[in-house]
């Protein structure tokens, strides 16, 4: 049985007919074609499908779509505003933190949540935050650099 739910994603309202068991990840990727949210394991081990739910980073594969009703969902598609990259995105590019790019949306969103909660993170804070998201290409070194860079820029502004 499907029921209609209303989701607020990146500031826009979407009406979707979903079965109760469908995850937020499935609705984002399959129903709404917001494919910037990636799927690597679909069981909460890898962090690739990270989105922000009321500003908190969550694995969207572990959240039922119906549980996101009444909350603000932010996906990677909503991070760049008005054609301008977010400073976090600029730092990921400048520091060489991207290779195959599959984990990049999750890393960017995780960083956004981290800096909102903790504007001046230590390296250990950064590592603790990134630990939930797997990367197979970079060895994380430049991802940490990018997050440090983004934190520094946030402090400046």
């Amino acid at each position: 049985m499907k029921k209609m739910i209303s989701l607020n994603i990146n500031g826009e309202s979407y009406q979707v007919a979903v079965e109760n068991r469908r995850t937020l990840l499935e609705v984002l990727r399959e129903d709404l074609k917001l494919t910037g949210t990636r799927v690597m394991c679909n069981q909460g081990d890898c962090g690739s499908c990270t989105v922000l739910l009321d500003g908190v980073a969550v694995n969207s594969c572990l959240v039922l779509a119906s549980d996101a009703v009444g909350k603000q969902v932010e996906t990677i598609e909503g991070v760049a505003q008005g054609g301008a990259l977010h400073p976090i995105q600029e730092e990921f590019i400048a520091k060489g933190a991207i290779q195959c790019g599959f984990c990049t949306p999750a890393m960017v969103l995780t960083t956004k949540a981290l800096l909102a909660a903790n504007p001046d993170p230590t390296e250990e804070d950064i590592k603790q935050t990134v630990a939930g998201t797997l990367c197979r290409c970079t060895g994380y070194v430049r991802i940490i650099d990018a997050i440090k860079g983004a934190a520094a820029r946030r402090k400046e502004s």
């Binding site: 074609k33 910037g36 990636r38 990677i76 990259l85 400048a94 991207i98 790019g101 990049t104």
Partner: peptide, 22 residues
């Protein structure tokens, strides 16, 4: 050490992997 030519599409989530194609 120039930025990657494919960085923009990857960092914005626009990059289309085969998995994203329907």
């Amino acid at each position: 050490g120039l930025p990657r030519v494919d960085a923009l599409e990857k960092v914005t989530g626009q990059a289309m992997y085969t998995l994203d194609l329907t």
